[in-house]
Amino acid sequence: MAGRRALKAVLIDLSGTLHIEDTAVPGAQEALNRLRQASVAVKFVTNTTKESKRILLERLQRLNFDLQEKEIFTSLSAARSFLEQKQHRPLLLVEDSALEDFTGIDTSEPNAVVIGLAPDHFNYQTLNKAFRMILDGAPLIAIHKARYYKRKDGLALGPGPFVTGLEYATDCKATVVGKPENTFFTQALSDLGCSPSEAVMIGDDARDDVGGAQNAGMLGILVRTGKYREGDEKKINPPPHLTCTSFPEAVEHILKNLL
């Protein structure tokens, strides 16, 4: 690890890395506990458009993971800090379950458009309203740009198509706040007081977790759980710092080699 400073923080993806739906990855809880005994900060980072931090926390605690709400940083948190920093008053096209992460944000006379995943809001009238605001100069902020996601009844459109449509209508480029954007990772690290070169990211998504983190100057570890498919590690350049079976193995590597 020539030229790297000692590791100060570990960022951990949630879905697909610590758990798959309502089942924990075997050994993940104990591995997290071992990591916590080392002198390293831990943060949980995820692209979510509909689940508030509270909902995520409750699910992880049900699965016996030891963590606190303040250790969770999501694409919704990233959107919130972006709004606060720019002092925007958003029109929030997010699902009702995500609204609580925006509590306290002034939404009167909106002057910015935030797009998450909001099947109930993605209708002609609301999109027209968002469109007119953007045409009049309101910035377009995307929680992330996923094309589609898997639902119990089959595949369903993600926020990406709607963001792309509005970009086309208004000839503008959205500010994407979730993974794999650089700012997402630097914001996640900001209250830990460490730089990207002192941090590592563990996740199951080669592009969004590992590639994004490495582009931001961190190390990236790819786990072969969740959405991982054979050969994913070859989809990014430079390749992951490490590709391993699952989260516990990633923790062992960190404890042995990076501290």
């Binding site: 002609y124 469109f131 007119r132 589609y148 198509p161 709607f162 792309t164 449509g165 209508a169 000839d171």
Partner: peptide, 23 residues
């Protein structure tokens, strides 16, 4: 991209075409 109706600008088919192209 859009067209004008008496009560303002409305999104046109190209926007939804782009959405499906991207998806």
């Amino acid at each position: 991209r859009y067209y004008k109706e008496t009560d303002g600008l409305k999104l046109d088919v190209g926007v939804y075409m782009k959405a499906l192209e991207y998806a």
